[in-house]
């Protein structure tokens, strides 16, 4: 798993639950020694088991279901000032939330353009009825859909859209994703999104050429 993802998880856990909680989690996961005092490094690729171990320990120590932790991680990625650059990159997807949903198919490709080693699962958006979308995440590590659910809910708010989004469950990976990830642990997950009003409130300001608050 790419360091940027691991680092995002670390930043979320330390910001939301405190640096001491992160220390406990990384110790419980048996990683404190390997990672050193700084934790994950952004530009390094780690074994996926490390990520799994961190998430399992976080869920156990914080007594929170994994799905809800992951959804909070997604929300954090869009709304926390510490990762403002990411929110800006997501907002490049379109001028409205509906536009953004249509642009999700391009997200893994865009990401790869910027950081070639950062492989995101393939995303498939279908408008099943006017204002009704189905997002399928192909061949992803279990729980990725919950992160996306958090991202979508927070971004809908960022755009000022009134939406309802729900996780529709996971099935074993069909192998439909273009990336060669027919790993038995991978799944396809889907999310249903209803956009009731794309301009329900003003949302947050976004300038294309703005400077990301670091």
């Amino acid at each position: 798993m790419h360091g940027l993802i691991n680092k995002a998880i670390q930043a979320f856990l330390s910001d939301a639950f405190g640096a001491a909680a992160w220390d406990r989690i990384s110790r419980h996961a048996g990683l404190a020694q390997d990672l050193g005092c700084e934790g994950f490094e952004a530009m390094q690729t780690y074994d996926p088991h490390l990520t799994e171990a961190i998430l399992d320990s976080a869920s156990a120590l914080l007594d929170r279901p994994r799905a809800s932790l992951l959804e909070d991680l997604g929300t954090y990625l869009v709304s926390n000032p510490r990762v403002a650059a990411l929110r800006r990159l997501l907002r490049f997807g379109g001028v409205s939330f509906t536009d953004f949903l249509h642009s999700l198919d391009d997200l893994p490709g865009r990401t790869r353009l910027a950081v070639p080693e950062l492989l995101l699962p393939e995303l498939l958006t279908e408008e099943t009825a006017p204002g009704r979308f189905n997002l399928t995440i192909l061949s992803c590590p279990p729980g990725f859909g919950h992160v996306m659910l958090g991202v979508l809910r927070a971004l809908a708010d960022d755009y000022g859209a009134l939406t309802v989004a729900e996780h529709r469950g996971a099935t074993p990976a069909s192998g439909a994703g273009r990336t060669d990830r027919r790993n038995p642990g991978l799944v396809d997950e889907s999310i249903e999104i209803e956009v009731h009003d794309p301009a329900f409130h003003d949302g947050r300001q976004f300038d294309l050429a703005g400077v990301a608050e670091a």
Binding site: L4, E38, E41, A42, M43, A85, L86, R88, L89, F92, R110, T111, L113, A114, V115, L208, A209, A212, A214
Partner: peptide
């Protein structure tokens, strides 16, 4: 738009690398 996106992504990555380098 892709160019702007890349520019911004590059800056974000460079900032992160800079932090790592500094440490």
């Amino acid at each position: 738009i892709e160019l702007l996106y890349l520019l911004e992504a590059k800056n974000a990555v460079m900032a992160e690398l800079d932090r790592t380098n500094h440490a």
